[in-house]
Design a binder for these strands. Structure first.
Lengths: 202, 202
DNA sequence: AAAAAAAGAATGACTATTCATTCTTATTGC
DNA sequence: GCAATAAGAATGAATAGTCATTCTTTTTTT
């Protein structure tokens, strides 16, 4: 049976849809129970799909985890360049717009999963590789967009500042996840203060 | 059988020893596999103890997790006052000594477990309560020891600065755990820079 | 001998994964 | 246009093993 190109495209699209359906369900389960606490049968139930059918779209549970890690960061990866490539004059407004992107880290829905990914990266090399790749891109973009507006700073110190901003980002996620009383606005306020002081010349 | 007071004390001591034996083993297992990845039988094997015997010292697996969370932070809880109560003149040396305590967060052996605790706090209210209690004590001590050496700063901004330092601490743990190439020294250097800038008056 | 400590087998529920089976959809010969 | 046919999609029961927890038995201490 020779499939037409049209039918093939349709099938591919449906496969993509089903994969997303599984990932959406897995995201909910993993957020609530963690990677190892969540079971395939509960993921299947959340996806309105039979257990066995999931294995048509993912080789195993780890493949779901990896795919989810990649999807999870892809959103943030798009934000920073959007703020950076705006080629606005590097001034106060630019920094504020730049900082505003970091609410990504403080989203109470996303934060638990992000933290789970970080914890898993400590024991799963594949996850660590995904995290590392994103991290390198993140720093590279930050460096490019922030370099013009900081004065003549020695290279080492720039790395320290970038590292501090990365640390603050992860710290926000940790705080939002672990403290049920943490308010995103106050966390962001602290982040803003810290970033301003880190980027100040002198 | 009438136990002498001496025998009773001896028994209590041995019980404490066995509890630590379990916690040490659980710590190793949890670090390597996470709270939900580690099994009671592997914890028992790591503790050189039978599975059933663990239940003499802990009601269930969750009780081990809670006890470990408490024990894990107790070390850091003692460090900060030690640096603060030194009643040295509040100067550069004091801040450096104060900062030095934060290598606790960057210890590659401890960090994975700390991160696991934070992630677990997002879904387990009991764990969240332990984390919250430590966090409040942490801030209180920081506030007391740092207040004298910062100038006249409005109250809100002090909270923001403390929040930023907490975020940086958790961020260090996240970075050390998730990035196999992260160097503790460079992480601490970035932390030092950020703290100095956060504590600077003006 | 009495009591506590420790072991380890038993339990029953749950695990990730596989597999034979059925249901749906698409393509072919007529 | 319409059966016949083939393929893909989807199911849910079966597998082999592990899980946390409990229970009974044995060993050690007092």
């Amino acid at each position: 049976m020779v499939s037409t190109a049209e039918a093939l495209a349709r099938r591919r699209q449906r496969t993509e849809l089903r994969r997303d359906q599984v990932l959406d369900a897995a995201e909910r389960c993993f957020r609530a129970e963690g990677f190892h606490g969540a079971s395939m049968s509960r993921i299947a139930a959340a996806a309105d799909m039979s257990v066995g059918h999931i294995y048509r779209y993912f080789e195993n549970k780890e493949a779901i985890i990896i795919a989810l890690c990649e999807r999870s960061f892809s959103g943030f990866e798009l934000l920073i360049p959007a703020a950076a490539d705006d080629d606005a004059p590097p001034g106060a407004a630019f920094i504020e717009a730049w900082i505003a992107q970091f609410v990504w880290w403080v989203d109470p829905v996303r934060a638990p999963l992000t933290l789970e990914i970080m914890a898993e990266a400590g024991r799963n090399a594949k996850v660590a590789e995904v995290v590392g790749r994103i991290d390198r891109r993140f720093r590279e973009i930050m460096r490019r967009s922030l370099l013009p507006l900081s004065g003549p700073i020695p290279g080492d110190e720039i790395d320290d500042r970038l590292e501090a901003i990365v640390m603050l980002s992860h710290g926000m996620t940790s705080r939002i996840t672990a403290d049920p009383k943490a308010e995103p606005d106050r966390i962001i306020a602290a982040f803003r203060l810290a970033v301003h002081r880190l980027l100040a010349t002198g």
